[in-house]
Simulated assay, not measured.
Amino acid sequence: MTLRAVFLLLAMALWLAVCAGLHLLVRRFGPSPWPRRLLRGVGWLAGARVRTIGPKPSGSTLMVANHVSWLDIPMLAGAADCAFVAKDGLRGHPFMRWLCEENGTVFVERERRGSIGDQLRAMDEALRSHKPLCLFPEGTVGPDGKMLPFRPALLKIAEQSLVPLTVQPVAVDYGPLAAAYGWPAGETGQANFLRLLGRKGRLEVTLHFLDPLAPGQDRKALAATAQRAISAALGVVPEPAAAAA
Protein backbone atom coordinates (compact mmCIF):
# COMPACT_ATOMS: atom_id res chain seq x y z
CA MET A 1 0.00 0.00 0.00
CA THR A 2 1.41 3.37 -0.99
CA LEU A 3 1.67 6.38 1.31
CA ARG A 4 -0.78 8.19 -0.96
CA ALA A 5 -3.36 5.39 -0.57
CA VAL A 6 -2.96 5.46 3.22
CA PHE A 7 -3.49 9.23 3.32
CA LEU A 8 -6.60 9.01 1.12
CA LEU A 9 -8.06 6.18 3.20
CA LEU A 10 -7.71 8.31 6.32
CA ALA A 11 -9.27 11.30 4.54
CA MET A 12 -12.18 9.14 3.35
CA ALA A 13 -12.72 7.74 6.84
CA LEU A 14 -12.89 11.27 8.26
CA TRP A 15 -15.28 12.38 5.51
CA LEU A 16 -17.45 9.31 6.16
CA ALA A 17 -17.66 10.12 9.87
CA VAL A 18 -18.74 13.70 9.13
CA CYS A 19 -21.33 12.69 6.51
CA ALA A 20 -22.73 9.78 8.53
CA GLY A 21 -23.31 11.97 11.59
CA LEU A 22 -25.04 14.70 9.61
CA HIS A 23 -27.07 12.12 7.64
CA LEU A 24 -28.40 10.44 10.77
CA LEU A 25 -29.49 13.84 12.05
CA VAL A 26 -31.03 15.20 8.84
CA ARG A 27 -32.92 12.06 7.79
CA ARG A 28 -35.25 12.47 10.78
CA PHE A 29 -36.82 15.41 9.01
CA GLY A 30 -36.91 14.23 5.38
CA PRO A 31 -34.70 13.08 2.50
CA SER A 32 -31.02 13.50 3.30
CA PRO A 33 -28.49 14.93 0.81
CA TRP A 34 -25.57 13.44 2.71
CA PRO A 35 -25.29 10.02 0.98
CA ARG A 36 -24.85 11.89 -2.30
CA ARG A 37 -22.34 14.27 -0.74
CA LEU A 38 -20.43 11.37 0.82
CA LEU A 39 -20.11 9.58 -2.51
CA ARG A 40 -19.23 12.75 -4.41
CA GLY A 41 -16.49 13.44 -1.86
CA VAL A 42 -15.11 9.91 -2.19
CA GLY A 43 -14.82 10.36 -5.94
CA TRP A 44 -13.17 13.75 -5.51
CA LEU A 45 -10.64 12.41 -3.00
CA ALA A 46 -9.83 9.57 -5.40
CA GLY A 47 -8.88 12.19 -7.99
CA ALA A 48 -12.00 12.19 -10.16
CA ARG A 49 -12.97 15.50 -11.71
CA VAL A 50 -16.36 15.16 -13.35
CA ARG A 51 -17.85 17.05 -16.27
CA THR A 52 -21.48 16.45 -17.24
CA ILE A 53 -23.15 16.86 -20.61
CA GLY A 54 -26.89 16.64 -21.25
CA PRO A 55 -30.04 16.72 -19.13
CA LYS A 56 -29.71 15.09 -15.73
CA PRO A 57 -32.42 12.60 -14.73
CA SER A 58 -35.22 13.20 -12.27
CA GLY A 59 -37.23 10.75 -10.18
CA SER A 60 -38.89 7.75 -11.88
CA THR A 61 -35.93 7.52 -14.26
CA LEU A 62 -34.01 4.30 -14.83
CA MET A 63 -30.45 5.27 -15.75
CA VAL A 64 -28.68 2.67 -17.91
CA ALA A 65 -24.90 3.14 -17.78
CA ASN A 66 -21.74 1.41 -18.89
CA HIS A 67 -19.56 0.12 -16.06
CA VAL A 68 -15.80 0.81 -16.04
CA SER A 69 -14.75 0.96 -12.38
CA TRP A 70 -16.03 1.22 -8.80
CA LEU A 71 -15.44 4.95 -9.27
CA ASP A 72 -18.50 5.02 -11.54
CA ILE A 73 -20.68 4.80 -8.44
CA PRO A 74 -19.48 7.86 -6.50
CA MET A 75 -19.27 9.89 -9.72
CA LEU A 76 -22.79 9.05 -10.90
CA ALA A 77 -24.29 9.46 -7.43
CA GLY A 78 -22.55 12.78 -6.97
CA ALA A 79 -23.76 14.09 -10.31
CA ALA A 80 -27.29 12.66 -10.44
CA ASP A 81 -28.18 11.82 -6.81
CA CYS A 82 -29.14 8.32 -7.92
CA ALA A 83 -29.55 5.00 -6.17
CA PHE A 84 -28.12 1.81 -7.69
CA VAL A 85 -28.99 -1.75 -8.56
CA ALA A 86 -26.16 -3.80 -7.00
CA LYS A 87 -25.11 -7.41 -6.66
CA ASP A 88 -26.52 -9.20 -3.65
CA GLY A 89 -23.01 -10.13 -2.47
CA LEU A 90 -22.66 -6.72 -0.85
CA ARG A 91 -25.25 -7.78 1.72
CA GLY A 92 -22.56 -9.96 3.30
CA HIS A 93 -20.51 -6.93 4.34
CA PRO A 94 -22.46 -5.21 7.16
CA PHE A 95 -20.75 -1.84 6.79
CA MET A 96 -21.05 -1.76 2.99
CA ARG A 97 -24.64 -2.98 3.26
CA TRP A 98 -25.52 -0.09 5.58
CA LEU A 99 -23.92 2.45 3.26
CA CYS A 100 -25.75 0.99 0.25
CA GLU A 101 -29.11 0.87 2.00
CA GLU A 102 -28.82 4.48 3.19
CA ASN A 103 -28.50 5.48 -0.48
CA GLY A 104 -31.52 3.40 -1.53
CA THR A 105 -29.66 0.50 -3.18
CA VAL A 106 -31.70 -2.35 -4.68
CA PHE A 107 -29.88 -5.68 -4.24
CA VAL A 108 -30.30 -8.35 -6.92
CA GLU A 109 -29.16 -11.94 -7.42
CA ARG A 110 -28.54 -11.98 -11.15
CA GLU A 111 -27.93 -15.72 -11.36
CA ARG A 112 -31.19 -16.69 -9.60
CA ARG A 113 -33.71 -16.43 -12.39
CA GLY A 114 -36.54 -17.46 -10.08
CA SER A 115 -36.07 -14.29 -8.02
CA ILE A 116 -36.53 -11.88 -10.94
CA GLY A 117 -40.10 -11.05 -9.87
CA ASP A 118 -38.99 -9.95 -6.39
CA GLN A 119 -36.14 -7.95 -7.88
CA LEU A 120 -38.42 -6.12 -10.29
CA ARG A 121 -40.84 -5.29 -7.48
CA ALA A 122 -37.96 -3.87 -5.45
CA MET A 123 -36.85 -1.77 -8.43
CA ASP A 124 -40.41 -0.56 -8.97
CA GLU A 125 -40.63 0.54 -5.34
CA ALA A 126 -37.27 2.35 -5.61
CA LEU A 127 -38.43 4.20 -8.71
CA ARG A 128 -41.32 5.64 -6.69
CA SER A 129 -38.85 7.50 -4.47
CA HIS A 130 -37.30 10.89 -5.14
CA LYS A 131 -34.13 9.36 -6.62
CA PRO A 132 -33.37 8.07 -10.11
CA LEU A 133 -32.23 4.44 -10.15
CA CYS A 134 -29.03 3.43 -11.99
CA LEU A 135 -28.55 0.00 -13.56
CA PHE A 136 -25.32 -1.39 -15.03
CA PRO A 137 -26.71 -3.89 -17.57
CA GLU A 138 -23.29 -5.40 -18.28
CA GLY A 139 -23.57 -6.99 -14.82
CA THR A 140 -19.89 -6.37 -14.07
CA VAL A 141 -16.94 -4.31 -15.25
CA GLY A 142 -15.33 -5.36 -18.51
CA PRO A 143 -11.64 -6.23 -18.99
CA ASP A 144 -9.37 -3.23 -19.50
CA GLY A 145 -12.30 -0.83 -19.40
CA LYS A 146 -14.02 -2.39 -22.42
CA MET A 147 -17.80 -2.51 -22.61
CA LEU A 148 -19.47 -5.93 -22.34
CA PRO A 149 -22.79 -6.85 -24.01
CA PHE A 150 -25.81 -5.43 -22.19
CA ARG A 151 -28.00 -8.02 -20.45
CA PRO A 152 -31.69 -7.20 -20.87
CA ALA A 153 -33.23 -9.14 -17.97
CA LEU A 154 -33.66 -6.29 -15.45
CA LEU A 155 -34.82 -3.90 -18.17
CA LYS A 156 -38.06 -5.82 -17.99
CA ILE A 157 -38.99 -3.23 -15.36
CA ALA A 158 -39.67 -0.85 -18.25
CA GLU A 159 -42.28 -3.28 -19.61
CA GLN A 160 -44.26 -3.65 -16.40
CA SER A 161 -43.51 -0.72 -14.09
CA LEU A 162 -46.57 0.61 -12.28
CA VAL A 163 -45.20 4.15 -12.43
CA PRO A 164 -44.51 6.29 -15.52
CA LEU A 165 -40.92 5.36 -16.26
CA THR A 166 -38.18 7.03 -18.29
CA VAL A 167 -35.16 5.01 -19.46
CA GLN A 168 -32.10 7.23 -19.95
CA PRO A 169 -28.70 5.97 -21.18
CA VAL A 170 -25.62 7.44 -19.52
CA ALA A 171 -22.14 7.10 -21.04
CA VAL A 172 -19.32 7.11 -18.49
CA ASP A 173 -16.26 8.29 -20.42
CA TYR A 174 -12.79 7.86 -18.89
CA GLY A 175 -11.13 8.78 -22.17
CA PRO A 176 -7.68 7.21 -22.68
CA LEU A 177 -7.52 6.13 -19.00
CA ALA A 178 -10.39 3.61 -19.23
CA ALA A 179 -8.03 0.62 -19.35
CA ALA A 180 -5.94 1.91 -16.43
CA TYR A 181 -9.03 2.36 -14.24
CA GLY A 182 -10.65 -0.92 -15.25
CA TRP A 183 -10.60 -4.12 -13.21
CA PRO A 184 -8.10 -6.62 -14.65
CA ALA A 185 -8.87 -10.32 -14.40
CA GLY A 186 -7.39 -11.84 -11.25
CA GLU A 187 -7.20 -8.56 -9.29
CA THR A 188 -9.13 -8.62 -6.02
CA GLY A 189 -11.55 -5.86 -5.11
CA GLN A 190 -9.32 -4.65 -2.29
CA ALA A 191 -6.23 -4.62 -4.52
CA ASN A 192 -8.12 -2.70 -7.22
CA PHE A 193 -9.39 -0.15 -4.71
CA LEU A 194 -5.93 0.47 -3.25
CA ARG A 195 -4.24 0.53 -6.65
CA LEU A 196 -6.53 3.27 -7.91
CA LEU A 197 -6.14 5.29 -4.72
CA GLY A 198 -2.40 5.07 -5.18
CA ARG A 199 -2.45 6.55 -8.69
CA LYS A 200 -1.11 10.07 -8.96
CA GLY A 201 -2.77 12.86 -10.85
CA ARG A 202 -6.37 13.69 -11.64
CA LEU A 203 -8.87 11.63 -13.57
CA GLU A 204 -10.96 13.68 -15.99
CA VAL A 205 -14.27 11.91 -16.59
CA THR A 206 -17.24 13.02 -18.69
CA LEU A 207 -20.74 11.78 -17.89
CA HIS A 208 -22.91 11.98 -21.00
CA PHE A 209 -26.59 12.08 -19.97
CA LEU A 210 -28.10 11.02 -23.28
CA ASP A 211 -31.60 11.45 -24.66
CA PRO A 212 -34.21 9.19 -23.03
CA LEU A 213 -35.20 6.15 -25.07
CA ALA A 214 -38.50 5.95 -26.90
CA PRO A 215 -41.18 4.30 -24.74
CA GLY A 216 -42.91 1.08 -25.72
CA GLN A 217 -39.81 -0.98 -26.54
CA ASP A 218 -39.34 -4.43 -25.03
CA ARG A 219 -36.36 -5.16 -22.78
CA LYS A 220 -34.18 -6.63 -25.52
CA ALA A 221 -34.75 -3.64 -27.78
CA LEU A 222 -34.05 -1.27 -24.88
CA ALA A 223 -30.78 -3.05 -24.07
CA ALA A 224 -29.62 -2.92 -27.69
CA THR A 225 -30.70 0.70 -28.20
CA ALA A 226 -29.06 1.86 -24.95
CA GLN A 227 -25.81 0.12 -25.80
CA ARG A 228 -25.72 1.67 -29.27
CA ALA A 229 -26.34 5.15 -27.84
CA ILE A 230 -23.63 4.77 -25.19
CA SER A 231 -21.16 3.27 -27.68
CA ALA A 232 -21.76 6.19 -30.04
CA ALA A 233 -21.11 8.70 -27.25
CA LEU A 234 -17.87 6.91 -26.35
CA GLY A 235 -16.82 6.47 -29.98
CA VAL A 236 -16.51 2.68 -29.78
CA VAL A 237 -18.04 -0.20 -31.69
CA PRO A 238 -20.79 -1.86 -29.60
CA GLU A 239 -20.65 -5.53 -28.69
CA PRO A 240 -23.67 -7.60 -29.78
CA ALA A 241 -26.42 -7.34 -27.17
CA ALA A 242 -26.75 -10.34 -24.88
CA ALA A 243 -29.38 -12.88 -25.84
CA ALA A 244 -30.43 -13.61 -22.27
CA ALA A 245 -34.08 -12.99 -21.46
Rank of each mutant, 00 (worst) to 15 (best):
L71W: 11
I116D: 00
E109A: 14
A77M: 12
R28N: 08
F150A: 02
P149L: 02
L38P: 08
L10G: 11
M75A: 14
R110E: 03
L213A: 05
G201M: 02
I230C: 03
A223P: 09
Q217K: 14
R199H: 12
I53G: 02
E204I: 06
R27N: 06
A86L: 05
F29M: 09
R49V: 01
T166D: 05
L9Q: 10
P57V: 01
Y174V: 00
P240N: 11
D218E: 13
P74G: 01
R97H: 15
L154P: 02
P169K: 03
R199W: 10
L203F: 13
S115W: 13
C100E: 04
V167Q: 00
A80S: 13
H130M: 03
G182A: 02
A191N: 14
A5G: 10
W15R: 14
A179Q: 11
D211M: 08
A242L: 06
M96G: 07
V170E: 00
G216C: 05
R4M: 12
K131W: 07
L154Q: 03
V163Q: 14
A244Y: 07
L127Q: 01
L165G: 01
D173V: 00
G41M: 07
R37V: 04
G114A: 13
P57G: 00
V64A: 00
L90D: 08
T140Y: 11
I157M: 02
V237L: 13
E101F: 03
M12P: 03
Q190G: 08
A171D: 06
R128I: 04
L133Q: 01
A241C: 14
R195Y: 00
L22M: 09
P35D: 03
A20I: 11
A158I: 05
L14D: 05
P152C: 07
H67C: 10
I73V: 14
E187V: 15
M123E: 00
A79E: 15
H208K: 05
H67Y: 04
F193A: 14
F193N: 06
A122L: 04
S115K: 15
F95T: 14
D118V: 10
T225I: 09
L162D: 15
G186S: 12
R27P: 06
E101C: 08
W44A: 15
W15A: 07
W70T: 12
R128G: 05
L62G: 04
L154M: 04
R151P: 07
R121W: 08
G117D: 11
V68Y: 06
A179R: 09
P33V: 09
E138Q: 09
L90A: 13
L3V: 14
S231Y: 04
G104D: 02
G142R: 02
D211L: 11
A226T: 11
W98Y: 08
L16H: 08
L234E: 01
H93T: 10
R112E: 13
A13D: 05
S231P: 02
L203Y: 13
